[in-house]
Amino acid sequence: MNTQAQRLKKRHRISAAFKCFCLSVTCLAIAILGVLILEVTVLGLPWLNIDFLTRFPSRFPEKAGILAGLAGTLWLVSLTAAIAIPIGVLAAVYLEEYAKPGRVSTFITINIANLAGVPSIVYGIIGLAIFVRFLGLDRSVLAGAMTMSLLILPVIIIASREAIKAVPSSLRQVAFALGATRWQVTRDHVLPQAMPGILTGVILALSRAIGETAPLIMIGALTYIAFVPEGPMDEFTALPIQIYNWTSRPQEAFHELASAGIIVLLLVLLIMNATAVWIRYRGNKNRFR
């Protein structure tokens, strides 16, 4: 019986050590985020001022600014939203409300799941070959937005389908019973109910588009741009491209500029995510149950 007690003690020790290990590893993961944010802030905050936000890139770090990148990102994300949101949401509507379950719908579903896992740089290759070269859009914002749209479409479709699926079928039945057509049911009942979920997914997808770098480099957005794009066919640069450009230079001052750029980028993402959380919160308040 004594050995049994000793064994129990040992088992407890192992168990406690394991729990301790899992806890410390989790703390470590959180600490990494802390270190990352601290580093970026310490390096970049001194450079962050109005001048930085209103200047164009320059060979001299003290004269460089992020305006071209910021403007390019705004152009890019607006065009991407204009292209990807309608296509993505309507594709989700088709798959959830119109398509009969069967081979076609299963095939499209699997296809979308796989597209979501394709590396972003492959989308860049496709953008380069099709939009830049084949369609002759060159290095325009439009080419960038179309490439980004392909990249985030799977995300938007998957999120929108989840949101549409969450609408109770009793709501549809009530509307159908009143003699509505499918489109009337979708437009007046399903989409309004699913809207908070769709918007949340859309915003998260757009934040991904804002942060993506590789596809933009592929389509050739890494050029010296000292102007704000004025139309969809203009050349452009974007926030992450500017950051990449500065990070890849050896001088310490450019690294500090990159940190300042990262702070701007993360703030843009923070605002978008806060909006998503706010919409989700608002949407949960008035919902058909």
């Binding site: 985020l33 942060g211 980028l265 993360l266």
Partner: peptide, 11 residues
Amino acid sequence: LAGIPTIVYGF
């Protein structure tokens, strides 16, 4: 952590 752009991790 999952939402931080990859360029930031490169930096």
